[in-house]
Write a protein that binds this DNA or RNA. Structure first.
Length: 561
RNA sequence: UGGCCUAUGGUGUAAUUGGCAACACUACUGAUUUUGGUUCAGUCAUUCUAGGUUCGAGUCCUAGUAGGCCAACCA
């Protein structure tokens, strides 16, 4: 198959240009740098696919680096979850790195900066420092401690390191320019005192480096060539470069930071704070609730790594604000699941159907194709009997020409089985149909080769034999938010847009082949959608999640009428 | 009232760097179909506005407009 010609995104253009200008391809190296303070979500997936995709494209190593400089918010649990998610997406990192591994080196470099007069210890309160910082339209003022002697700075900084001071007493600041139009250049804090144990270095340190003093230097230590981050870090680039200017040696590679726009998905939110709020308020059952946009939630929902990677690829990367419609994600999961999912029959809203001319107590096994998209998937046997369940919405006493399903006096084929004709129906006191009586054509069995079996009827219904049916809890999910951009309203809280019907639990009646289904197994319930076995499932109590419904052109048509 | 970034169908990206605005999704037609699924064929654009340079502008220039980011001892 011919390689599809794919156009380059702007990051790839930058790399190609570097290569044309003499950059050695072997020196290319990337990294994915999550802070281990929460679970990865679909937005991270884009970044993961970008960095690891570049690694694959240029045959370059990609590090997984934990940006663990804030022990107040970070935990080992998140490190493990992140590793699991990246691996599940199908990527292999070259080296597992931690910013905390560089604490000593960072400290030594900071001492060097102090000696060069480029950093100083400030002993003001954070409020005073904030007041002196100025605003985007007004320049800041120099700190009274800005001209401390090198000796005093050295002594104080060492004291900070040794734990001689309490939190907030001092910080180390870079001496740059309090009048810069870039607020980040107004003597940014490099270190703060934090008497908190770190999940890796424990109590070895009581000063911790800030993001800006850590990130570029970590890139430099790891010799990352292109450090890619989201657009809100663009103003940090000037500082990233300033720090690098102070310590890069000529014989080593100098990393460059480039920024891309984060991907936003419609009908969801990805802010860690808001995600946490959903979990803590009990709106969802946890970080891996199948309605969550987390990688673990999508995995549990039944999404495949392939579908998420294809989604990220299709969306691409650029520099403008965006909201990708969730229907594109759904397209990709359907596209993949369509190829790999075995077809089965399951009735989720049962209506009893009795075939009056079918012998009572008789049972026969019908042959059913497992996947029309994949011949190698083979066939299975499905039991058929006199009493079946069909879907409630597949029967109407009367229906117009466009209603291809079962109506009184009308014919329909039972998938893999016989052509039946609805003769009558029984109703309860409220007028609801509770049973349909029909007759079948014994010569019309699917695959029997008879003239009757080849007869065309407009509709085909899925069904399940009542005496053989296996019951299961089936969880039907809908989008969590009713608004396309729940987090983007200035006057309204995103919690106001919670969809009250995002989860519906029903009892499903499944063909007996599903009895042995294992956690994670994926199926297409024919005419209904794609489902997988949830981790709550047991042998006694099967639980299925609906990953995504099938496209339903009839529902749209029917709604219009 | 500062600095920086961005603007291409309903959505997301492309456009060999100045040469026929392309791809995918969505929506809508129609064909095929023992899943109203899949598959196949088709339809849907004054490239934010106004000027300018040029044989030729989505791309370059000027001026607007709109949106975003920046004042944490978070990342």
């Amino acid at each position: 198959m011919a390689e599809e010609v794919r156009s380059l995104n702007f990051i790839e253009h930058i790399i190609e240009e570097d290569l044309r200008n003499g950059y050695v391809q072997d020196n290319l190296r990337f990294r994915f740098p999550p802070e281990p303070n929460g679970y990865l979500h679909i937005g991270h997936a884009s970044s993961i696919c970008l960095n690891f995709g570049l690694g694959l494209r240029y045959n370059a190593p990609v590090n997984l680096r934990f940006d663990d400089t804030n022990p107040a918010k970070e935990e080992k649990e998140y490190v493990e979850a992140i590793k699991e998610d990246v691996a599940w997406l199908g990527y292999e990192w070259d080296t597992e790195c931690y910013a905390s591994d560089y604490f000593q080196q960072l400290y030594d470099w900071a001492v060097e900066l102090i000696k060069q007069g480029k950093a100083y210890v400030d002993s003001q309160s954070s409020e005073d420092m904030a007041a002196q910082k100025g605003t985007p339209t007004e320049p800041g003022k120099n700190s009274p401690f800005r001209s401390r002697s090198v000796e005093e700075n050295l002594e104080l900084f060492e004291g900070m390191k040794n734990g001689d001071f309490k939190e907030g007493a001092h910080v180390l600041r870079a001496k740059i320019n309090m009048a810069s139009t870039n607020m980040l250049m107004r003597d940014p804090v490099m270190y703060r005192i934090l008497h908190k144990p770190h999940h890796r270095t424990n109590t070895d340190w009581c000063i911790y480096p800030m993001y800006d003093w850590t990130h570029g230097e970590s890139d430099y230590i790891e010799q990352v060539s292109h450090s890619l981050c989201t657009l809100e870090f663009l103003p940090h680039r000037e500082l990233y470069d300033w720090f690098l200017d102070q310590l890069v040696s000529k014989d080593r590679l100098r990393p460059k930071q480039r920024e891309f726009a984060r991907r936003n998905l419609s009908h969801t939110i990805v802010s860690k704070r808001k995600l946490l709020q959903l979990v803590e308020s009990g709106v969802v059952a946890g970080w891996d609730d199948p309605r969550m946009p987390t990688i673990s939630g999508l995995r549990r929902r039944g999404y495949t790594p392939e579908s998420i990677r294809n989604f990220a690829d299709t969306v691409g990367i650029a520099k403008r604000d965006n909201v990708v419609d969730v229907s594109l994600l759904e397209f990709h999961v359907r596209e993949h699941l369509n190829k790999i999912s075995p077809r089965v029959m399951a009735v989720l809203d049962p209506l009893k159907l009795v075939i009056t001319n079918y012998e009572e107590g008789k049972k026969e096994w019908l042959e059913a194709e497992n996947n029309p998209e994949d011949e190698s998937a083979g066939y299975r046997q499905v039991p058929f009997s006199r009493e079946l369940y069909i879907e409630q919405e597949d029967f109407r006493e009367e229906g117009n020409r466009k209603f291809f399903r079962l109506k009184l006096g009308g014919e329909v084929r039972l998938k893999n089985g016989y052509i039946i004709k609805a003769e009558s129906c029984t109703k309860d006191a409220n007028g609801n149909v509770i049973e349909v009586q029909c007759t079948y054509d014994p010569n019309s069995r699917s695959g029997s080769g008879t003239e009757e079996s080849l007869r065309k009827v407009k509709g085909t219904l899925h069904w399940v034999s009542i005496p053989h049916a296996v019951t299961a809890e089936v969880r039907l999910y809908d989008r969590l938010f009713t608004d396309p951009t729940p987090g983007a309203h200035k006057d309204k809280d995103f919690m106001e847009f919670i969809n009250p019907d995002s989860l519906e639990k029903v009892t499903g009646y499944l063909e007996p082949s599903l009895k042995e289904a294992q956690i994670g197994d994926k199926f297409q319930f024919q005419r209904m959608g794609y489902f997988n076995v949830d981790k709550d499932s047991t042998n006694e109590h099967l639980v299925f999640n609906r990953t995504v419904p099938l496209r339903d052109t009839w529902a749209k048509l029917d709604q219009k009428e």
